[in-house]
Design a protein around this nucleic acid. Structure first.
Length: 279
DNA sequence: ACGCCCGCCTGTAAGC
DNA sequence: TGCTTACAGGCGGGCG
């Protein structure tokens, strides 16, 4: 579910709600959510008593640094949610992990489809044990890149289609199915164009669109679609869906040229685009 | 290196 | 009212 803007919104919530608090107890009911750990006990014992020092983000991963020197890494997958709660609040369905803090209050991880996960690791192991994190590409919000470097890296993948390339987490970290479509529309580029085929001006437009779309989406606290699956720590939905120009707008008029937005499948994912102003 | 397909899960909506 | 199918913000792996 969540892409960079949603995860960044979650991270900011954690900074407000969780950083500085000490974990009193951890309850795990969904073993699949902590599947990298051999035992539940291993996960729990490395967290209980630890204080959360910082909340960082790399692409779609949230990384909480603990005062034990270890890191709690979270990935939401398609349907993961983190919610602030009180101990007396009823347990919602699909609640897999509950953190209770010494200062009171809880953080709960909910995840119907169970593609999300949490694990504790030491910083050095991030490269050895977690290659997918070590190999993440640049984060367009957290680590802005000079356009010259971007252009160079883009041309290092001359024949990959732009849509899969934008979604390749080892190339750029944080972009998924919604924001790749929005970025391509903003750039006026088709998702099946290749870096080799781009003019310098088109590369500039693409670069600017990546930065602008993601910053705007963060500003509006991400996108919440009709299923209401994505909400922040306090249950508040995002606003950015109202600014979508193509995603989930199949059959509707393009806001730039009035042509009809089309929906098609690419790599098994729905892709939305304007057949007239994306070239 | 790249494109395509599958599997991993559950819930929901649409179609018959 | 069922039952079946398709599809959903992610990712990794396997195959040609």
């Amino acid at each position: 579910m969540p892409e960079l803007p949603e995860v960044e919104t979650i991270r900011r919530g954690l900074e407000r709600e969780v950083v500085g608090k000490r974990i009193k107890s951890v309850e795990v009911s969904g073993l699949r959510s902590i599947r990298r750990h051999k035992t539940k006990k291993d996960f729990i014992s490395r967290l209980e008593g630890a204080k959360v020092k910082t909340a960082r983000r790399r692409g779609k991963y949230v990384i909480l640094a603990l005062d034990t020197g270890e890191l709690l890494v979270l990935h939401m997958g398609m349907s993961g949610q983190l919610r602030r709660a009180q101990a007396k609040d009823p347990t919602e369905k699909h609640t897999h992990v509950v953190f209770t803090f010494t200062q009171g209050g809880q953080l709960r991880f909910l995840d119907p489809r169970t593609f999300g996960e949490l694990f504790v690791t030491v910083p050095d192991a991030l490269t050895a044990e977690v290659p997918e994190l070590a190999e993440l590409g640049f984060d367009p919000v957290d680590q802005p890149l000079a356009i010259t470097v971007f252009a160079q890296r883009l041309l290092g993948r001359p024949d990959t289609k732009l849509k899969p390339l934008l979604m390749d987490q080892t190339f750029i970290a944080g972009i998924g199915n919604i924001y790749s479509d929005e970025i391509l529309w903003e750039s006026g580029l088709r998702g099946d164009r290749t870096p080799r085929s781009l003019s310098n001006m088109e590369i500039r437009r693409l670069f600017r669109a990546i930065v602008e779309i993601l910053h705007e989406a963060v500003k509006h606290r991400g996108s919440t679609l009709s299923d209401q699956q994505y909400v922040d720590l306090v249950g508040r939905p995002g606003d950015y869906q109202q600014f979508h120009n193509v995603y989930d707008r199949g059959g509707q008029a393009c806001r730039r040229c009035r042509a009809t937005i089309i929906r098609e499948k690419s790599q098994g994912r729905s892709t939305f685009s304007c057949p007239s102003c994306q070239v």
